[in-house]
């Protein structure tokens, strides 16, 4: 079955909006439950991790590009915490290894 990109975008927008607006309008409370709070704390880190690996390995036909980019960006992020710099290092790594 083929799906409409516009409908995808609308579903994404609706879910994003509800997550943000419900606590400001209907709920208006702090989350007290420790498990829920902890889960929400870890969710973004785990989501970003599982979205990065293994997808980064298939950036180019040569998986070494992705592996090297992951390591290089990881080192730069550890040292500098700089988003832009890590991104540049990842791109340059893929570009250089891609030339061989």
């Amino acid at each position: 079955m083929n799906h409409s990109v516009w409908l995808y975008i609308m579903v994404m927008a609706l879910v994003s909006y509800l997550l943000r607006v419900l606590p400001l309008t209907l709920i208006r409370k702090q989350i007290k439950n420790r498990f829920i709070k902890s889960l929400l704390f870890y969710l973004p880190y785990v989501t970003l991790s599982v979205m990065t690996v293994p997808a980064i390995f298939s950036i180019s036909e040569n998986p070494v590009c992705g592996i090297a980019a992951l390591i290089a960006a990881g080192i730069i992020a550890w040292i500098t915490s700089n988003l832009f710099l890590s991104a540049c290092v990842a791109c340059i790594t893929v570009f250089i290894i891609g030339m061989f």
Binding site: T52, A69, L70, A77
Partner: peptide, 11 residues
């Protein structure tokens, strides 16, 4: 690779 570099810089 840029978006992954940024994700890495967040995690």
């Amino acid at each position: 690779a840029a978006i992954f570099g940024m994700f890495i810089a967040i995690i």
